[in-house]
Nucleic acid binder design. Structure first.
Length: 108
DNA sequence: AGCGTGACGTGTA
DNA sequence: GTACACGCCACGC
C-alpha cells in the first residue's frame, strides 16, 4: 500500500463506513482536506471496480441520492443498502440524515 | 504541457 | 421549489 494517492485515501475512509450507515462524497473530500473534491471521490469510486472490498454503495451524494446506483447495475446498490438496514426509496436513502456517517465527525 | 471529462457541492437567478 | 452555472482536484489523451 502506501500509494499515497487520493484514491487510496478515499478507499480507506469508505471501508471505515460501518454497515447500516452512509456517507457523502463531500464528507469524504472534506475529511481528506478537499473542500470541493467531491468529484475526486466519485472518480475514485469509478476505479473502485478494481477493489470489490470497497462498499461504494454506502457512498451517496449530499441529497442522499444513489448517484452511482446506475453504475452498480440496476438495483444492486439499493439492495445492498436495504440488506444492511438502510431503506432506499426512489433511488434515495430514507432517513438519509439519520444514516449519514461523517468521518470528520465520527472519527473525530 | 494543455484541454476535456467526471458516481459532486454550493450559490444565484 | 426548480434550473442553471461555476468551482474543485485528479486522470486520460
Amino acid at each position: 500500500m502506501k500509494e499515497n494517492t487520493i484514491f487510496d485515501e478515499i478507499y480507506q475512509v469508505v471501508r471505515l463506513v460501518p454497515a447500516g450507515r452512509v456517507t457523502t462524497y463531500g464528507a469524504i473530500a472534506a475529511y481528506l482536506g478537499k473542500k470541493s473534491g467531491a468529484r475526486l471521490v466519485g472518480w475514485a469510486m469509478n476505479a473502485c471496480h478494481a477493489d470489490a472490498s470497497i462498499p461504494a454503495h454506502r457512498v451517496v451524494n449530499s441529497t442522499g441520492l444513489l448517484s452511482g446506483k446506475h453504475f452498480f447495475g440496476g438495483d444492486t446498490m439499493e439492495r445492498l443498502l436495504a440488506a444492511e438496514g438502510v431503506m432506499v426509496k426512489n433511488d434515495k436513502v430514507v432517513d438519509f440524515k439519520k444514516h449519514l456517517w461523517i468521518p470528520a465527525e465520527e472519527l473525530l
